[in-house]
């Protein structure tokens, strides 16, 4: 049994795949140091990230297929699925060893698997665009929490930077405990302490909330409740489109919020 252990970065994974292909060893597992538990009987190959080796193989893949396909591989990697490393290894191996284009040969196992995975990742990223809700804070930063199934927030940064170019914003992954901050100029990776944000509900503490924020949440919820047409109610379809796991971040699904005037 051959196990390749890499450092949890994408470049590290590709370096590991490079080494496996070069040495002609078929890995049984490629696993990140974070997930690795020692296995006494396996042959372990510890790989340290090497940009030269990364680029050699990455450029070869780019040449043989195309930029779009490289994006697909990267997206699949963001799924963090337990066997995604092997899928990527097999996929890259297939691309490099086949004289013609194989990335659309959907009768190949690794092609189907990689494509399905990257599609799921793409869908999750799309959901961030849909369901992220910003809360305005006292210092005029629009803050949003999310806990995506896959590590997809990096894929959404450009969208938000283009769309909300004139407001400062933060999108924070409460599951992976990192996020991005846009300061009207640049986007940079950040971490946030628990004292300002409740990681379970995603809510910013009241004392840092902008005075008008609650009013707009109430306005939005009252709008949401009003446009409902009761004759059309169909909760099954509703749940399919708006799965419960997203509700905690949506003001319109905050059943405790009251907006009646008194």
């Amino acid at each position: 049994m051959n196990i390749f252990i890499y450092d949890h970065t994408f470049e590290g994974l590709i370096t590991a795949i490079h080494d496996a292909l070069e040495s002609n060893i078929t890995p049984d597992k490629i696993i990140s140091t974070k997930a690795f538990q020692d296995d006494l009987f396996a042959t372990k190959h510890y790989i340290s990230t090497n940009y030269e080796r990364f680029e050699t193989i990455w450029n070869k893949v780019k040449e043989k297929s195309n930029e779009q396909n490289c994006q697909r591989i990267f997206k699949a990697y963001l799924s963090e699925m337990s066997d995604i490393e092997i899928v990527i290894h097999n996929y890259i191996k297939l691309i490099l060893e086949t004289p013609y284009n194989v990335e659309v040969n959907f009768s190949e196992d690794s092609v189907i698997k990689l494509n399905n995975m990257q599609m799921k990742v793409g869908r999750e990223a799309q959901r961030i665009l849909m369901f992220v809700r910003f809360q305005k804070t006292v210092d005029n930063i629009y803050y949003a929490s999310f806990d995506p199934k896959y590590n997809v927030i990096p894929l959404t940064v450009n969208h938000f930077r283009n769309r909300f170019a004139d407001q400062k914003w933060v999108i924070f992954d409460t599951r992976r405990k990192f996020g991005y901050y846009y300061d009207l100029e640049n986007v940079r990776e950040i971490t946030i302490g628990k004292q300002k944000v409740d990681f379970t509900s995603g809510k910013v503490n009241d004392d840092v909330l902008h005075v008008s924020e609650k009013l707009f949440q109430k306005l939005w919820k009252s709008y949401y409740d009003t446009i409902n047409i009761k004759e059309r109610k169909n909760m099954k379809v509703h749940m399919q489109f708006l799965p419960k796991r997203f509700w905690k971040f949506l003001p319109e699904k905050d059943f405790k919020m009251k907006y009646e005037l008194n």
């Binding site: 369901f131 170019a165 509703h238």
Partner: peptide, 23 residues
């Protein structure tokens, strides 16, 4: 597209932001 530093852009495929109780 968002022209310069304004607010917003319209994406060609459209984005849903929530769903009513009938989906």
């Amino acid at each position: 597209p968002n022209s310069g530093k304004g607010i917003g852009n319209a994406s060609p495929w459209g984005i849903c932001h929530s769903f009513t109780q009938d989906g």
